[in-house]
Computed example of a mutant assay.
Amino acid sequence: METVRVNLGSRSYDIALTHGATANLGAFVRAALPKTSSVLVVGDSNSWPHAESIQATLTRAGLRAGSAVVPAGEASKCLERLAGLYDALYELAADRSTAVVAVGGGVIGDLAGFAAATYNRGLPLVMVPTTLLSMVDSSVGGKTGINHPKGKNLIGSFHQPAGVWIDLAFLNTLPAREFISGLAEVVKYGVILDAAFFAYLESNSHAVRTRDPGALLRVVTRSCRLKADVVEQDEYERTGLRAVLNYGHTFAHAFETCGGYGTLLHGEAVSIGMECAAQLARKLGLIGDEFVSRQTKLLDALGLPTAPPTRWPADDLIAVMRRDKKAVGGQMRFILPTRLGEVKLFDDVPEPLVRTVLESAVSR
């Protein structure tokens, strides 16, 4: 078992990386939460086979284990499904010795995590991500929340997990589109923090895309370490450092919102958003053609999209971007690359330039 430690003082926790060893999850939960006596295992209709197995594993470890299942898809990140989890916790007679175990992708992690953050003023949380996207991104760092019809993740809270259990064997059954979507966040880490990691992805794109076990272990472990490094320095996104993780996301959230949640997978939207961000950075003179070309070629090699599937009006996209969580006073803010492995926050980007990038993207 590989372990990545997230050092946050009293809220520190381990990310355990295994392959086919989920039978050991009970011991992991017991070690992370010695006072826990009961758990609510939350999954969706896609992850439920894994969740059922995990529920049985936790029961064998001596924990009283209840369960809750929600429909798969981004639409489940809503108040109605959140209320359903509150009902399940109430039926379980949940108290401070109850933990929530989120088994699934980013939707389940965000939804179940927010339920844990808010029920009884906070319950312990264990993340068991089953998709590549959730393994390398959403399960680490403590961001939880649900969507609002006017914007993605507008309702949420920081709530660090007590532990993250990553079983890479779950990726064997992940549909190809879901797997490839997760690779967008992997590419993001290379762009924003680690040029050598970006070069590794360029040289090993085939092994990564075909799910070579060795390549996957390296990719997931490095991604988790890079995110942990950022979270350790800016847990609550107060200094601006953690904002670098939002590279491509201002554009991506607009595409997701205008398309209706579910039209694009999150990673697909992020891939298109990174392409738009690189084009914007080039127009501002921050980077040159070589950067844009390398990023586009890597996204293409991994099977990720670089243009929106629908010609959404630029006015609609900009209206959403003005209300993005990173915006201040309606002024759009962007994380843009200055060189490979480094990005910075810009809050003075001319709106006509953003419009030009959007119009070019939707016309491709």
Rank of each mutant, 00 (worst) to 15 (best):
M274N: 06
G122I: 12
A61L: 08
R218E: 10
P34L: 03
A56G: 14
L280M: 14
V230H: 08
G240T: 07
V292G: 10
I192C: 01
A72R: 01
R242H: 02
S53C: 10
S67P: 00
I192L: 04
A32G: 05
E342D: 15
R355G: 14
G105H: 02
F251T: 08
R238W: 00
C258P: 00
A176Q: 14
M127K: 08
A361T: 04
G104D: 11
P124T: 05
V357I: 15
L17C: 07
E268D: 08
S271T: 01
A277L: 09
A117E: 12
W165E: 07
C258H: 00
T98G: 10
S67D: 11
G151W: 03
R238P: 00
L299D: 04
S76F: 09
E202Y: 10
V69E: 14
S76W: 04
K326Y: 00
L25I: 14
K325H: 06
N246K: 03
Y261L: 12
A72S: 14
I335N: 11
T144Y: 10
G106I: 11
V270F: 07
L154N: 07
L340P: 09
A65S: 15
V230C: 09
D194K: 05
K326L: 11
T131C: 06
Y86S: 11
E232T: 11
M127P: 04
F255K: 06
M1R: 01
T59K: 13
A281C: 10
T131V: 01
R121G: 11
P71G: 10
F198D: 04
E91P: 03
G259W: 09
L125R: 11
V29R: 02
L92H: 13
V362D: 02
I155N: 07
A115G: 07
K227H: 03
E359H: 00
A51Q: 07
T239K: 03
A277P: 09
D44P: 08
N24C: 06
A278P: 00
L174A: 12
D95T: 10
L304R: 05
T250G: 03
V29M: 10
P34I: 02
A196N: 10
P175G: 06
L154S: 12
T257C: 13
H19R: 15
D300F: 14
C276A: 15
L33P: 06
V100S: 08
S10V: 12
E52A: 15
Y86K: 08
R81I: 00
L92W: 06
V128Q: 01
R222C: 01
A23L: 09
V191Q: 05
K150M: 14
S139M: 02
V187F: 01
V270M: 02
K150H: 11
G259Y: 05
A23F: 08
R218L: 13
T57S: 10
T131Q: 05
A116L: 13
T130P: 02
G214S: 13
G303M: 05
D110E: 05
S360H: 07
A307L: 03
L79Y: 11
R218H: 15
G122H: 12
A199S: 14
L171M: 11
D110I: 09
G142N: 06
V100T: 13
R322C: 14
G248K: 00
G156K: 04
F28S: 15
A56Q: 15
A327V: 09
G285R: 08
M135C: 07
R30D: 13
G104E: 13
Y200I: 08
K152M: 09
G105P: 04
